[in-house]
């Protein structure tokens, strides 16, 4: 059964590239353009991994992750944050919210795929 990834990023081009890349690896991909949009996609369907940007309009990535973790269906879902934020405070805030990996932008798609594969091998 293909595993489902929710990919949240405000850049359309990044979403496009990553959707293609992840699908090629056999994952199902749902995309959202900001935290708010992403929350609305969390309607109870099974999601195996969330990959989210930090700096986004409407709702930032950390707020979104915290909200998502409050939903029973997603409280154990692993999260990878894509970010240029390397501030330690953000990191620890994220860690407390269950963020497993921080990948600093600009990242190489293979790098992200390796992280994805370590967390939820298809």
């Amino acid at each position: 059964m293909a595993k489902t990834i929710l990919f949240v990023d405000d850049s359309a081009s990044v979403r496009q590239v990553m959707t293609t890349t992840l699908k090629r690896e056999g994952y199902d991909v749902i995309t959202a353009e900001d935290g708010k949009d992403a929350l609305s996609k969390l309607d109870g369907k099974k999601i195996h991994l969330i990959i989210s940007d930090v700096n986004m309009p409407n709702m930032d990535g950390l707020t979104f992750v915290k909200q998502a973790k409050l939903l029973p269906a997603y409280k154990f879902t692993p999260v990878i944050m894509l970010t240029t934020e390397t501030a330690a405070s953000k990191m620890s805030e994220g860690k407390a919210s269950g963020v497993k990996a921080w990948i600093v932008k600009p990242f190489q798609p293979p790098h992200l795929l390796a992280a994805v594969s370590q967390l939820i091998l298809a």
């Binding site: 991994l49 409280k75 154990f76 879902t77 692993p78 999260v79 269950g98 497993k100 370590q118 967390l119 939820i120 091998l121």
Partner: peptide, 11 residues
């Protein structure tokens, strides 16, 4: 480990 969304078997 489980609560953080990880499955030891995926490793």
């Amino acid at each position: 480990v489980f609560r953080n969304g990880m499955d030891p078997f995926s490793f």
